[in-house]
Amino acid sequence: MPKKKMKYDRAFKENAVKLSYEKSTIIEVADDLGIVPCLLTKWRQEYQKFGTGSFQGSGFPKVHPDNLSCFELEKKHKESELKFEILKNATPYLYQGNLIIYQFIKDNEKKYSITKMCTILEVGIGRYLRWKKYGMPKKQQYVTLLKKDITSIFYNFKKKCGKKQITKELHKRGYEIVEGQVSFYMKGLGLRSVAKRKFKITTDSNHNYYIAPNILNRNFKTDAPSKVWVSDITFIQTNIGFLYLTIIMDLFDRKIIGWSLGCRLFTATTTLPALEMAVKNRTVIEGLIFHSDRGVQYANKAFTKKLNSYQITSSMSRKGNSIDNAVSESFFNSLKRELIHRKSTLITQKLMKSEIFDFIENWYNKKRIHSALGYKTIEQFTAINNLKQE
């Protein structure tokens, strides 16, 4: 039967070392204490190196008391470096739900301590070990996938969508969820759409030109293309002055069918080129109504003559009543919230023109979902209604 290995406490080892310096030989002391001389030699070497910091036992650092402060500082420094390294490697997974974080921990178990990763990533070690053994509960899998889809939708729409749009998009993906739940998860994920800002009115209605009656009368829904076009002008500040954007929208599908961007508020650089583009992009049919505010760019003879040449009927908002042209105002709200106001500094006119083109032609007219179209893109709405793209 093998001999049982003896264990000695710290006090015994310290006394044995001190006694060894009082006796003539190590062998003599070892015989008196009933231990082998080589063990006493080992204890003496440790005591010479670490002093009263010796014989702390497993799990405790061996360090001389005089060096304890430096040791603690080095330990904290190493822990900080390790924490930074783990966080740096885990950053891409932090907001994708527990399932992704658990997988990261599992993939890095050989590199880092499980306890350390769970502590730094604020994951319960018990929950992680249960997931590792049994997998994730169905409810938790559902929530994880839901959060992932909410985040995906938010960033696919360039942070420009709120809870209503995300809820509608989730419904298309098969989720049964209400706006309040989406709002709750968005807050938890730190997702916040760009806030709206007010902008100045550019309408100059102090003129003697003819003012058309308000034929549209806030009837912002039509059942076919080219029944009502609405138009408005806004200003956009750049690093060397202002640009003036004129848009023409077909109320049927909310598509921007004509637009113009220039440095001057002249009719020749605003409403006329926008109208020419609209006529080129969409067929004018009999009875078409063109609605705008009372601005001089819409009321002057040059523009009204051009409308008459296409047999388009003019309609204008009532004085000082921007709600009469609410759809155009809404477009400019979206433009400034989703593009202009997101910039921390003013950019050049050339770059702004390029970004406005991309926003209208590639984003708004193709990829952006519209509440007025049942939370569909213009292209989806066109396909559903079996209309030819114009």
Rank of each mutant, 00 (worst) to 15 (best):
Y142N: 10
Y142L: 07
V143W: 08
V143C: 08
L145D: 07
L145H: 15
L145F: 13
L146H: 08
L146M: 14
L146R: 08
K147V: 05
K147D: 09
D149Q: 14
D149S: 04
D149W: 02
D149H: 10
I150D: 02
S152D: 09
S152E: 14
I153R: 02
I153E: 03
I153G: 00
F154I: 09
F154A: 05
Y155V: 09
Y155L: 09
Y155P: 02
N156I: 00
N156P: 01
N156C: 06
N156Q: 15
F157V: 02
F157P: 01
K158G: 04
K159C: 10
K159Y: 06
K160D: 10
K160F: 05
C161K: 05
C161P: 03
K163F: 04
K163V: 10
K163C: 12
K164A: 12
K164G: 06
K164D: 15
Q165I: 02
Q165S: 15
Q165F: 01
I166R: 00
T167G: 02
T167W: 01
K168A: 14
L170E: 05
H171Q: 13
K172E: 07
G174Q: 04
G174P: 00
G174N: 03
Y175M: 03
Y175Q: 03
Y175H: 03
Y175F: 11
E176N: 12
I177V: 13
I177S: 00
V178F: 07
V178Q: 14
V178C: 14
E179W: 05
E179M: 13
E179D: 11
G180A: 13
Q181E: 12
Q181T: 15
Q181M: 14
V182C: 02
V182F: 01
S183N: 08
F184D: 12
F184R: 15
F184Q: 13
F184S: 11
Y185T: 01
Y185H: 11
Y185P: 02
M186H: 04
G188Q: 13
G188T: 03
G188S: 04
G188V: 06
G188L: 10
G188D: 05
L189A: 09
L189D: 06
L189R: 06
G190E: 05
G190P: 01
G190L: 09
R192I: 12
R192Q: 14
S193G: 10
V194W: 12
V194F: 14
A195Y: 08
K196R: 13
K198V: 01
K198A: 05
K198G: 01
F199T: 05
K200S: 10
K200E: 08
K200I: 08
I201Q: 11
I201S: 12
I201R: 14
T202G: 09
T202N: 10
T203W: 00
T203M: 09
T203G: 08
D204W: 04
D204I: 09
D204H: 11
S205I: 08
N206C: 10
N206P: 11
H207K: 04
H207C: 07
N208V: 14
N208Q: 14
N208D: 15
N208L: 14
Y209L: 04
Y209R: 01
